[in-house]
Structure formats: C-alpha cells, structure tokens
C-alpha cells in the first residue's frame, strides 16, 4: 500500500502538467482546470465582486492557456503565469465597468429624474450567499483601489508569497510589502464598525 508521501510524489507538478499539455496531452489540461478553477474564481470574485463575471474571466483565462500554451516558458512558476492572466483580465473588466459608468453618467440629461446610478450587474450578495460579515468585508475590498486590492487578495485571501505577488503584479518586492501594509491599514479604517463589534 502506498503511503501519503508516495501519493504526493505521484501528483504531477503544475509545470509538469503544462509541459505535458504543451506536448499534446489534453488530459493534463483537464487536470490544470480542476486544480485551478476554484482558486482563480475565488481570486476573480474577490477582485470584481461578481460571480458571473468571475466565471467568465476564469473561462477566458483557461481559453488563453489553451490557445497560448506555448507562450509559457518554464522559467517562472505556472501559478504566477495563470494568476497574471486572470489578474490582467480582472483589471480590464474593472476598467470596462468604469467606462460604462462614466458613459451612463454622461448620458443622463438635466430633465432626467433618474439620477441614481444603478449597478449594471447584480451585487455579489444576490449571487453568493454571503454572511453579513463577509458582505461587509467584500464591500471594503471593493472600495480599495486596484493596486491595494490586488496585493491584499493575493496575500491575505489566496495566501501567496510576497515573491510570487511581486511576479504577478510586476512590482518590486518592497512595493508589495508596502502596499500590503497600507492596504491592511485602509481595511481597518473601512471596517472599523465590524472591528468594534468584534471587540465587544
């Protein structure tokens, strides 16, 4: 009977899987999808606050991996590469939303009584059964600027190393640490009510 350590040894690494896929093994691609779909959706969801958009983005991520499998060179970790793709797509989606919001503002006339901006997408609370605490935290994350949001999610939610975050976000290690620090302090401000409650 095989021990746990033997089983672990038999589990192919990400880099082995992508190499197998690059050599035409489609089953290796399936394994990559199974291994990464949930963590990438979680990352995208925390970034965008919308499950449907997150799934679309992660689907697009896997399609890009499928199309551009040969673009991956075994000099960086595969996880860094795939997280970078998802992160870039998520940032693009945020920019797109911003443009749409601006467009919807500019389209409002003076006589238009409907000044209230309606969300183009349903809020995350409508798609995911979040607890009130989770909802407050997600709102606080959403309110962070992109540069803080990305590092906080990667560090404190996805629990990646500073080095990996530095590679994904393409910023120096010192900047990652500084942003994580400032991001956490900003979240403290935004979640002061929650923190007060937790103190009680």
């Amino acid at each position: 009977m095989k021990s746990e350590s033997d089983k672990e040894d038999l589990t192919p690494s990400d880099e082995e899987l992508i190499e197998r896929f690059q050599n035409g093994d489609l089953y290796a691609f399936d394994l990559i999808v199974k291994r990464y779909k949930d963590q990438l959706i979680n990352f995208a969801y925390r970034f965008l606050g919308d499950l449907e958009d997150s799934e679309d983005i992660v689907q697009e991520t896997f399609l890009r991996v499928f199309r551009k499998k040969d673009a991956y060179k075994n000099v960086a970790k595969f996880s860094t590469w795939i997280y970078t793709i998802t992160g870039n797509l998520a940032k693009t989606e945020l920019r797109r939303r911003k443009r749409r919001k601006l467009l919807s503002i500019s389209n409002l006339g003076y006589n238009n009584k409907d000044y209230e901006l309606r969300d183009l997408k349903k809020g995350p609370e409508e798609r995911v059964d979040l607890s009130i605490q989770d909802e407050m935290i997600q709102k606080a994350i959403n309110s962070l600027s992109k540069k803080f949001k990305e590092v906080i999610i990667l560090r404190d939610i996805q629990e990646l190393s500073y080095e990996e975050i530095s590679n994904i976000a393409k910023i120096p290690l010192g900047t990652v640490k500084s942003r994580v620090n400032r991001g956490r302090l900003k979240l403290q401000e935004k979640l002061s009510e929650l923190l007060k409650d937790s103190k009680k």
Partner: peptide
C-alpha cells in the same frame, strides 16, 4: 482583519 480575509468563504 487578516484572520477575516483568510476565513472568507471560498467561492467555487
């Protein structure tokens, strides 16, 4: 805060 973030429900 770190603990909250770590224990956020994992979306699947």
């Amino acid at each position: 805060i770190k603990n909250y973030l770590k224990n956020l429900r994992k979306v699947q």
